[in-house]
Amino acid sequence: MIRAKRQSSFLPKEVHPLKRTRSLSLAALVLLTLFAAGQALASDVVDALGSPLALDGPARKVLCSGSGALRLLTYLQAQDLIAAVEDIEKRSEARDARPYFLANPAFRDLPLFGEFRGRARAELILGLPEAPQVIFKTDPEAGTPAAELQEATGIPVIPLDYGNLLDRREALYASLRTMGRVVDRQERAEAVIAFFETTLDDLKRRSASLAEEDRPGCYVGGVGFRGAHGLSATELGYPPFVFTGARAVTEEEAPSDRASHAEISREKLLAWDPQYLFIDLSTLNAGERAGALYELKNTPLWKDLRALKEGHVYGLLPYNWYTQNFGSILADAYFVGKTLFPQGYGDVDPAAKADEIYLFLVGKALFSEMNDLFGGLAFRPLSLTQD
């Protein structure tokens, strides 16, 4: 039995260009010419109240509210524009799988403007030492709703759809482009989009010619979703499987090309008996006597699983950490591809590829640092001797 959970998505209103209602005077035309570059950045961006955004040039200070908003700004190499941060950026955790934060630990020293998941506080924003010109907000109705936040602060709030790299890729790209126009990082936005497209094409190409019988059954367990989970927690439409053409055993019952968290029964996993088992290392946060690794080591029920007997159990970097970390998704995909289809990945060192991905997206090679946080268990076979 599979019980699936889907995250809600925000679908933005259609964006309309600014409509002109009266003739422009000569003076207005002169002013328009002077500010044309700045206005072009934002004239097709609509705020939370439905009004076209008007700035006299690129935004110089911004806030990012909601899951993943600051990550996208970091991808655009515009993190220096941040005026303040949510409380999640100020926490000290033993394990943190957010590459954008690991590459920018100075976020912790910035002023606070609210709580994570979009719970921005108007009184903190109005008291900031540097006033933001724009607030970017993902999942606009979560936490403090975008329109309510804009009315309380008088600062334009730009709703964004975080999207994903599967069925909502265009939403992600639209958000990157919107951010890019507002902060004058259009070229960088296009470079990030091209990077995603080139990388996904490369992953697809490497195993495209393999016959179905050459694709062993695999399963990913311990997948994080608003916290740590055990072996039964998986993801239908798991992106690293989709991108590499891997055959997920869950597809036998619930085919999916859209990621959604799911809980599966022990009986199903035993019946599927996957040849390869991947573990999302966020499961380590479940506690010393809990989580997927503890279960595999200490539950007799699992000892006859084919993957365990043949030593085909591997660790993956967590990627669903304050929503999806796209760099980690791609890094995990290269390791999955290398493990399942070595003939197509002979030139790939997954750890080096992860560093290449992180370096491009967040400006720092982070595989070793992240791997150390998770016990050095990523991208390697896991030892499952009993605790």
Rank of each mutant, 00 (worst) to 15 (best):
A248W: 01
L366E: 10
T323K: 12
D304A: 14
L270Q: 03
K309H: 00
Y276Q: 08
G344K: 06
G245S: 06
R306H: 12
F367A: 01
N298K: 12
Y322W: 12
S256Q: 07
E251I: 07
V348F: 04
R247L: 05
A331I: 07
L361T: 08
G315T: 07
F374Q: 00
A331M: 00
Y345D: 14
N320G: 00
E263A: 13
L293V: 15
G346F: 09
L366F: 07
L359S: 15
S328K: 06
N320W: 08
G375A: 08
F278G: 02
V336T: 05
S282D: 08
L269S: 01
G327H: 01
I357R: 00
G245M: 02
G315Q: 03
A271H: 05
N320L: 13
S260H: 14
E356D: 14
N298H: 12
W321G: 08
A351P: 14
L305F: 04
D257K: 11
L296D: 11
E252I: 10
K353F: 10
L359I: 06
P318K: 03
L305N: 06
L308M: 11
N325V: 13
R289I: 12
S368V: 08
T283Q: 02
A307F: 03
F360L: 02
F341G: 12
P318H: 06
R289D: 15
W321V: 15
L269G: 07
S282I: 14
N325F: 04
A271S: 11
N285E: 15
K353M: 13
A262F: 07
L281P: 07
F374K: 02
L340A: 09
L293F: 12
A351H: 10
Y322H: 14
S256N: 10
A246Q: 04
A262I: 04
K268N: 12
H312F: 10
P342S: 12
F341P: 14
Y294P: 11
Q343P: 05
F335Q: 07
G344T: 14
A354D: 06
G291V: 04
Y276I: 09
W272S: 07
F278M: 02
K338C: 10
G245I: 04
R306M: 08
N371H: 01
I329Q: 04
T339C: 14
L330G: 02
T283C: 04
S328P: 01
E263D: 14
L284Q: 11
S265H: 07
L340W: 09
L281M: 11
P300F: 03
A262E: 10
T299Q: 15
Q324E: 14
Y322Q: 11
L277H: 00
D347Y: 02
A331P: 07
A292Q: 03
T299N: 15
V362R: 02
I279M: 05
A351V: 14
V362A: 10
N298F: 12
N371V: 03
T299W: 12
H261C: 02
P318W: 06
I264G: 01
E251D: 15
G346V: 10
R289F: 15
E356V: 04
G376E: 04
L301V: 15
D280K: 00
N320S: 09
F374H: 03
A292Y: 08
